[in-house]
Each structure stands twice: as structure tokens, then as C-alpha cells.
């Protein structure tokens, strides 16, 4: 017998009431707003810090998600690069059959981390989604999704005030 038994509550009739809670935030994307405006314009933008001699791995760093400031050399990052047509691969993936409340109606969906070829990928493995059955695009089965697979960005049509990271998604660029 555990000493815990003597602490078991005798309350069998707790009163449960409803407490609704709803909030609209007016959120700023700050200095990385160009990334989100880029999504609206159907462009995938990252930004690059070229102070490689000051970086831990000695390389230029691509930021995707972008950053306004380099965490390694603390320089302001001003150079945006257009990656819409870059060679992008799957770094890792998962297909979700459950989700948080907002996304529950979308299951199953596939989350990926991307791998932009030609850059060090330390800061650029952006999390996004892969759509495998988009009409007019290459369609594949869930079991065929694989690490290293070539993918390309696509963009949802949404009003500017509704743009967020989900405006961007990817589709297979090879079988």
C-alpha cells in the first residue's frame, strides 16, 4: 500500500462551468516582413550573412526562417536571396494524422524540414508542408516521401493581412 492512498480526494461532486476565451492579436512580422510579403508575391526569400570569417563554422549563413540580425556576428542582415527556383530537398518529414485544434480538419498532412542545396543548412531547414496530391503537379503516395527528395515551393492566394507561414507549401519536383 502506498502512503498516497490517504491523500486521495473524497470530492465526488466538483462543479464544472464554462469559461470561453477568444482573442484577436494584431501581430507584426517586424524586420522580416519582406519574407512574408514575398510569399504574397509568390517568391521564397531567405537572407544571408556573408561575414563567414566571424561565423563558428567559417561559412556564409543562409537564414530560412530569415532573421534581421546574425546570431553569430551580430551584424544586421541586409542581403535577401530569392530561392523560389533553388534546388530544394527534404531534410526530414512526418505525416500527421492528428493535430492541434486549428489544424485537425486538415489531417493527414505532411510536415517537412527543407534542405536548400548550395548553402550551409545550419540555419535554413525551414519547417513547411508537402502537398502530395495537388492537381497539375507531380502526385506521389505517402509511402514514397523520402529524405533527399526534390521539392518546389508553391504559394496560396490569400489577402496580405492573412499571410502567414502556411501561405507557403511545397510539392514534389520529382517522383
Amino acid at each position: 500500500m502506498s502512503v498516497g492512498e490517504k491523500y486521495v480526494s473524497k470530492n465526488k461532486n466538483p462543479l464544472i462551468v464554462d469559461f470561453p476565451y477568444s482573442i484577436l492579436y494584431k501581430h507584426t512580422f517586424g524586420e522580416v516582413s519582406p519574407f512574408f510579403i514575398g510569399l504574397k508575391n509568390k517568391r521564397l526569400l531567405g537572407n544571408v550573412c556573408r561575414n563567414k570569417e566571424k561565423h563558428k563554422n567559417g561559412k556564409d549563413l543562409l537564414f530560412l526562417p530569415p532573421r534581421a540580425d546574425c546570431p553569430e556576428c551580430m551584424a544586421e542582415i541586409t542581403e535577401w536571396v530569392d530561392l523560389t527556383d533553388a534546388d530544394i530537398r527534404i531534410y526530414t518529414f512526418t505525416t500527421a494524422y492528428f493535430a492541434g485544434e486549428t489544424f485537425l480538419s486538415r489531417v493527414p498532412f505532411t510536415l517537412i524540414n527543407i534542405d536548400v542545396q548550395g548553402y550551409d543548412n545550419s540555419y535554413s531547414k525551414l519547417t513547411s508542408t508537402l502537398v502530395i496530391n495537388e492537381p497539375g503537379e507531380i502526385n506521389i503516395e505517402q509511402k514514397d516521401i523520402r529524405i533527399g527528395m526534390k521539392i518546389k515551393p508553391k504559394f496560396r492566394d490569400v489577402p496580405l493581412e492573412k499571410v502567414d507561414a502556411s501561405t507557403l507549401y511545397f510539392v514534389p519536383a520529382e517522383k
Binding site: 526530414t92 492541434g100 529524405i147 507557403l168
Partner: peptide, 21 residues
């Protein structure tokens, strides 16, 4: 919440993607 949550991200999926890798 700017980059990972809006695409449907939640913890089981983040860990699942890490497990895949």
C-alpha cells in the same frame, strides 16, 4: 508561432520529424 506553428506544427509532429531523421 511565426514559422512553425502556423503550418500545422505541434509537438508530436516535430518529434516525429526528428525521429524520421
Amino acid at each position: 508561432t511565426d514559422f512553425d506553428f502556423p503550418v500545422g506544427g505541434y509537438y508530436s509532429a516535430y518529434y516525429a520529424a526528428m525521429a524520421t531523421r
